[in-house]
């Protein structure tokens, strides 16, 4: 059962600036992204213009403004992964999924994100699908990995 926006907002004190980021984080955990309504409501609650709330939210990498796909692909673009060819991996995933990084497919099944480091440098290059790690991946394996997820829906 999803907690409603009101319930999440009421956990925090009105008008306190320092609870802005935790509040946005809680909303994102619950709904997966920040929509327009959430930004407006948070603005009213914290007593900040919603433009400012939006400005702060876009500053940080964590906040998303589109819904995640059912399968969320994260490709690591850290230094170690880069040296092991993660750029080609990212391009290949983009090609197979027919998505650009940061996008969600129209049917809501897939989304793709490039992250700066997942801290798994020992097993580079790594990719993460819904929390499950794929380590030391080769370009040839990608189509197979993605087809596996395609067939599970």
């Amino acid at each position: 059962m999803q907690a409603s926006l009101d319930e999440i907002i009421s956990r925090y004190k009105a008008g306190s600036r320092e609870s802005l980021l935790p509040l946005l984080q809680d909303i994102q955990i619950e709904f997966g992204y920040l929509n327009e309504e959430a930004i407006l409501r948070v603005g009213q609650h914290i007593k900040l213009p919603s433009s400012k709330v939006y400005g702060i939210a876009t500053f940080y990498d964590q906040f998303r403004f589109v819904q995640k796909g059912k399968f969320h692909f994260k490709v690591c673009r850290g230094t170690s992964c880069h040296m092991h060819g993660s750029l080609s991996i990212l391009r290949e995933v983009e090609r197979v999924l027919n998505l650009k990084e940061g996008q969600t497919s129209r049917d809501g099944r897939f989304s793709l994100e490039a992250v700066s480091c997942m801290g798994a440098c020992g097993s580079a290059p790594v990719m993460n699908v819904n929390g499950e790690f794929k380590t030391a991946i080769a370009i040839q394996d990608i189509a197979q990995i993605i087809n596996f997820y395609r067939s599970t829906i």
Binding site: Q25, Y60, D61
Partner: peptide, 21 residues
């Protein structure tokens, strides 16, 4: 909330205060 610059101490303070880092 994920920003490289927040490793800088004063940016980190801003971030805790609920501002841009």
């Amino acid at each position: 909330p994920g920003a490289f610059v927040c490793g800088e101490e004063t940016a980190l303070i801003n971030s805790i205060e609920g501002k841009r880092g």
